[in-house]
Design a protein around this nucleic acid. Structure first.
Lengths: 207, 207, 207, 207
DNA sequence: GGGTAACCGAGACGGTACGTCTAGTCTTTAA
DNA sequence: TTAAAGACTAGACGTACCGTCTCGGTTACCC
């Protein structure tokens, strides 16, 4: 049920769906929870963050959190997404090469700064906990990989890339270095990297 | 003190060092702890693994663990290293290109299978916990990066790679995809990948 | 308001009182609640019983219960009274001695079996909770004590008992042993006890 | 194990038993827990009392309480016993009639005042919870009943009481009224009652 | 027959306490 | 001195209920 709730949570709830039995979900509480989560993450890691602390800070019952999110990872993912300027849409690219460059640029932007730490920690949690893994994949990793894959496939059709290019390998080559740097030397995930890496990476797989 | 102890732990303790006052360290306990850790990691993640569980399984006091290792990450790293067939030395490569290929091949071998999960989880823990970060970096990541960096630098000197190659970026390009695949699609970290990736990756940065 | 409602609840609601505005109380819900309560009390103690469980079992909103009963004790008391064969009227006694015997006999009958446990548990709750205390006293204890007191007083007037008999003490002497046995050795509150105790007890206070 | 621990807890631990492995039980914590319990019981009922509150007040981990007592009832029983002046030994009676009078007098003294409420509440909890029942019986009820039974049996042998007297019934007659008054009209469990009841009760069963 | 009032179910809300678990420390005896 | 055993404080976990609230709906009455 939580899963269903989560779905509905993320989606734009249609007016007809809201006409349900029982007291409706408190939007105020939801906002308070996500806000408290983001606030706490400025001072501590995802692992250190506790549901109890969120509940206390948001002045909300623990139950309310557990009712709507299956675990900490899900709360944090939602909190990240709720941040302003995260889901800024990409401008229309003129070709697939540019599309990929824009996606990588956006990814690096997102991982630079405080959110980067949080996402690295979520990536971490996902390694250990199956439920966390699924949520992280569904809300973050899969969309990213799918988008890049799509651009590569399109690029192969449009002769921007050679048709012999292994799509999955290309995805790893494009995204892997970014995450590796994030997790091994986060300080080097800076502006310079953002300006040089995407072009360089695409150039390599085009070769 | 724990740091010192760890050092001593890893090095071959000279006979003179062992000739100290008091009851000597029980080799039996150390073995039991590492064995128990490896055994437990077959059924659970590093995050789920608890010091208490190790102590119980190894029939050892918790204090004994805390005396010799600063935290869980350190225990697990030691336990991994204690596994047979992990530190197989590399054969002498005929040039730096081959050296890198061999290092990547060894890395993929190590990450394939059960150990891969554990290392991914350690990589994870390192994101959240500073102490874990330091230990993971010192015992795993830095040696790897240093070795690859060294080979690249050497390769640049020997004209195997163009001198304009950004070494750090090259390291990310070589290692990043492997870890990205490990953490996002571990099933694809298979034999085929091991046979094709290293050569392909080196070819790319040579271009 | 709940208190007033409770009164009305117990009394025979006059037709004029029912002619109020608004939707009338659902008799169906009331019955379902009391039935569910009795049913649940067969498998659990009053303390274990929860309002939520009653509401769920009776397919009734929690609010409906809270609207009509101030607390769990009140619900359980009502549920007990709703059981068939509880409020069987006593036959007319030929004197006050016999009246007391009949009252004690009825009491023991009531306390023998499943209801005994429930009443003992109610007696218990009453020790801790003032509201419960008042309800238990009003609906169970006071009527009993008053009836016995009345018979004793009458008996004193009719020279059945010596006039120096302390009425309150006599009540304790007559009722106390029954409850003590109920709460300390409920198994001994059996048929034999029911047949022998009342006569013996009255004989003692007559002496 | 907790049961065993409890036993040892109550008994005078022999020196040989204390010579065990591991850190010995902290007497300081034990004292703090019992003291905190007594202190809290001045302001709240046993039912309202929570383990968490005790732990907080005593500045003790919850685990420490759960390690040594199986439940709240056990803690409260121990706390009661730890009060000064509870286990005052009886002076030697000159016969069994007097022995019973002294036992009843002691019982009333114990039940008069704050402890009376607590014991009534414990008696209550015992009605609902089997574990509580056993502990209450073992540490309070059974000793009392046994003592009175013993005196009655002795009194029958010494011709103080008629041999046809039903011992169990006599116990109920002697003790029941006291508890009935405690639970139904605790205010009447006063000094006057303490001075008159025991003699009167014994007189009755002697008749 | 529309308005109004009290009811109904469902279920979310802020809370409290539960009993369990683990962390990391401390205190003993035995080797 | 170290090992083992195990008790210590501290605090998060996820669950169960509490008593209150807020919905959409449902009867009844009253005008």
């Amino acid at each position: 049920m939580s899963q269903a709730a989560l779905q509905q949570n993320n989606a734009q709830t249609t007016p007809t769906m809201q006409a349900r039995k029982g007291r409706p979900r408190s939007q105020k509480s939801k906002t308070a929870i996500l806000k408290a989560t983001n606030s706490l993450l400025l001072h501590m890691s995802v692992q250190e963050l506790s549901i109890e602390a969120i509940a206390k800070k948001a002045k909300v019952g623990k139950t309310t959190i557990y009712r709507w999110w299956p675990n900490k990872t899900a709360v944090v993912m939602d909190a990240l997404r709720a941040q302003p300027g995260i889901q800024s849409p990409l401008p229309t690219p003129k070709n697939n090469t540019e599309a990929i460059i824009m996606q990588l640029d956006k990814l690096i932007r997102m991982l630079d700064g405080n959110n980067g730490d949080t996402i690295a920690q979520l990536f971490s949690e996902a390694q250990a906990d199956d439920k966390a893994q699924k949520i992280f994949a569904r809300t973050f990793l899969t969309p990213l990989i799918d988008a890049v894959e799509f651009s590569i496939e399109q690029g192969k059709e449009h002769k921007e890339f050679r048709s012999s290019l292994n799509t999955k390998l290309a995805v790893d080559l494009l995204c892997g270095p970014i995450f590796f740097r994030l997790m091994s030397r986060p300080a080097d995930l800076n502006e310079e990297f953002r300006e040089t890496y995407p072009k360089e990476a695409v150039r390599l797989i085009s070769a």
